[in-house]
């Protein structure tokens, strides 16, 4: 099986699994809706600064929950099966691509729920969609790799949080900075710089994850 077809089949497998056990996806969607309602009930009228930060905090927590299961959910036998059959790069890349798609849906849903319930202060909509895309990619790369590390341990839920939150911070800070721009809270014409930083961080993390994953997956 060629490398690309391996990736294709692995992504297809993820979709099939997700479709068979729909509770995982619907659970995350409900999670987003519930937290947005909590945010709304605690603010009633959500100021722009709070909109910006709570939006991204909800996305961080929802993504951790969504992605934590990507390696932790795999049984030992299935991992052994991949190990005998697949290229490690195909395994990690397919998980990252699938999780990116999942997070993009999650981000869009969160945006829709926020606009519906708490109002939509976004002024530069195109920029905001670009930020959602870059943010979803960055979160997916980091959380997928960290979940591969945390899955090896017994207390993986705690490890997932303590390993990933400090590492996600550079991406999160850049995202909040950029989306403050899209919301019109700060007028910074040099935001392309921030976008380049975000892309650079994403590329570096993908590169490191690809280099390190082959050492990680086999026991």
């Amino acid at each position: 099986m060629s490398f690309t077809s391996q990736i294709f089949h692995l992504i297809k497998k993820e979709f099939v699994l997700e479709w068979r056990q729909r509770y995982a996806l619907s659970g995350i969607l409900l999670y987003v809706l519930a937290t947005v309602f909590i945010v709304y009930s605690s603010f009633i009228r959500v100021p722009d600064t709070a909109w910006n930060s709570t939006f991204w905090i909800i996305i961080v927590f929802a993504s951790v929950n969504a992605i934590a299961k990507s390696f932790i959910g795999e049984s030992g036998n299935r991992t052994l099966y991949y190990y005998s059959l697949m290229n490690p790069y195909a395994v990690i890349l397919s998980k990252m691509i699938y999780n990116t798609l999942l997070l993009l849906i999650l981000c869009l849903l969160c945006y829709a729920a926020f606009s519906f319930i708490a109002g939509n202060p976004v002024q530069n909509v195109q920029l905001f969609y670009l930020i959602l895309f870059l943010g979803g990619t960055g979160f997916s790369i980091t959380f997928t790799f960290i979940s591969a590390i945390a899955a090896k341990s017994k207390n993986n839920a705690t490890l997932m949080a303590i390993l990933s939150f400090p590492i996600i911070l550079p991406i999160l800070m850049t995202l909040i900075n950029l989306s403050a721009n899209a919301l019109g809270m700060i007028k910074d014409t040099a935001y392309t710089n921030d976008i380049l930083i975000l892309i650079a961080i994403d590329l570096i993390l993908v590169g490191m994850a690809l280099i390190l994953f082959p050492f990680l997956w086999r026991d």
Partner: peptide, 17 residues
């Protein structure tokens, strides 16, 4: 082994922070 993988990953994020 897993500590080493994380250590390298952590060092790469250090300059960003």
């Amino acid at each position: 082994r897993i500590g080493a993988v994380y250590n390298i990953f952590a060092f790469v994020t250090l300059p960003m922070l």
